[in-house]
């Protein structure tokens, strides 16, 4: 079957990336901000895979693997910190945690 042109995939990846970005801005709950960050990372991974595929090189996919592992690491640390925030600040709402400022 004919190869899907690179631009289309990049558009999809860009769309996904934009979605994640908006998610970070809009959501008040820290957990969902984490989720949307993951979405952004994966969108970037997708872009990499597409770029690699268009050049018949495996680099894109190797990069994607690394992106996955790093994203996993981040999420785990993020969730751990989230627990601490819940216990220390009593809430998970991003806007409430603003003791530092000025």
């Amino acid at each position: 079957m004919t190869a899907i042109p690179l631009e289309h995939v990049l558009l999809v990846a860009a769309g996904l990336f934009g979605l994640g970005l908006v998610g970070v801005l809009v959501r008040r709950n820290l957990l969902f901000m984490l989720v949307s960050v993951e979405v952004m990372l994966n969108a970037a991974g997708l872009a990499f895979v597409a770029a690699g595929a268009s050049r018949w090189q495996a680099d894109g996919q190797v990069m994607f693997l690394f992106v996955l592992t790093v994203a996993a690491a981040e999420v785990s640390v993020g969730l751990a910190l989230l627990l601490q925030v819940r216990r220390r600040l009593g809430t998970v709402d991003a806007d409430v945690a603003r003791r530092l400022g000025g």
């Binding site: 990846a13 860009a14 952004m40 872009a47 990499f48 770029a51 690699g52 680099d59």
Partner: peptide, 9 residues
């Protein structure tokens, strides 16, 4: 990362 992807592309 996304920037890198574009550059790589």
């Amino acid at each position: 990362l996304f920037g890198m992807a574009l550059v790589y592309a």
